[in-house]
Amino acid sequence: MTERNERTVLGVRHGAPAFEVPAGATDTHVHVFGPAEHFPFAADRSYTPGAAAVADLERLQALLRLDRVVLVQPSPYGTDNRCLLAALSELGARARAVAVVDPIASDEELQHLRAAGVRGVRLNLESAGQHDPAVALDGVRRLAARIAPLGWHLQTYTTLPVIAALEAELSTLPVPLVIDHFGRATAARGIEQPGFAALLALVGAGRAYVKLSAPCRISAASDYADVADIAQALIRANPDRMLWATDWPHTARRRNPNALLAAIEPFEPEDDGRALNRLNEWTAGDRDLMHRILVRNPARLYGF
């Protein structure tokens, strides 16, 4: 078997880490899909992904020398977390998860999710095309109230304008807040862009974690070079609130609104080994910083 094949997962080749990955390193944002005959997608989904099995994820983890992983409920499953729970069961103690739940979910359902390894809920505003701060605030408040007794965190995927509009409210939530994918900053606009100061303020005050993940969603530059300033500004603001993730298996960044749901949407060919090495570059190879971002911070948040 060739080296290329040995480092390939779902048809994408992943480079090797160019540094010593610390024990307990965690990928804090991945998705698992399928098999479709066992875990049907929601009828109102916006796309239909291909299969990305636990075995594929385990292979990626081995290639990147990672020990822990956090599964995040993807939007095509809606609030049906059965695929997520099956993957948690298969992965065992090395995994935690973030579910998507209805604010009126029963206490019994939430306790069942907690026992299985769920440690937070996700409010995915961006994938739903929801950019109204009032709607976002209503969802944040309702979910935060439900999950506070469980000791969970609230994870949200939204934009800088929404974050800036809700900065005061987000800074007083009764639960930890996790913001996906650099807060959807536009890398080409740099650290002075509107809304980024609000994100930095939340991070600096310890009121929000940010996932340094999916640079492909905020940059069109070669090797996402313009993301470095964004990432380093966030790290400087508060390294104890930084998380890292691959966003594997990389669902499409842009969708064709006329695409048929029967058509399987291919995954993006992102090199996750390069993504891990990019983090090492953003920290200038600082081993303490890398340990905090890859090990200590996720262990604190997800209870590893």
Rank of each mutant, 00 (worst) to 15 (best):
L91C: 05
Y302G: 04
I264W: 00
P269C: 06
P149H: 03
A136N: 06
L60S: 09
T251K: 02
Y47Q: 09
I191K: 01
F41D: 02
T251W: 07
A52N: 12
V32R: 12
L150G: 02
V69A: 04
P194T: 06
A145F: 02
V135Y: 07
R142T: 11
L64N: 07
T186N: 11
H14T: 12
E281R: 15
A53S: 15
V100H: 00
Q111A: 14
G50Y: 14
V101Y: 00
L173F: 06
A43C: 02
D240R: 13
Y47W: 12
R292I: 11
D272A: 13
A18K: 11
Q61M: 15
P22E: 09
I230V: 09
Q155D: 09
A228Q: 11
Y47P: 14
L113K: 03
G117D: 06
V100A: 12
D132H: 05
A95P: 03
E37M: 03
A115K: 12
N81F: 03
F304C: 09
G303C: 08
Q73E: 11
G117W: 06
A148G: 00
E167S: 11
L110Y: 01
A99N: 01
L85G: 08
V72Q: 02
T2W: 04
Y224P: 02
P298D: 10
D223C: 03
A188Y: 01
F41R: 13
L199G: 06
Q130S: 13
A23V: 13
N280T: 03
D288L: 14
G129P: 07
A197Q: 04
L60Q: 10
R300D: 13
E109L: 09
L276I: 13
D286S: 13
V69M: 13
L150I: 03
T246N: 00
E126Y: 05
V162N: 08
K211T: 02
G24Y: 10
N81C: 04
T172K: 14
A214W: 00
H31R: 09
L260N: 14
T172F: 05
E108G: 06
A87C: 07
G120S: 02
A259G: 07
R13F: 06
A16C: 10
A263R: 14
D226E: 08
F267Q: 06
R241G: 00
D271L: 09
N258D: 15
A136Q: 05
V175N: 04
P17L: 12
A197C: 00
R114F: 01
A231Y: 05
H291F: 11
A262P: 02
H153C: 04
L199I: 06
A95V: 11
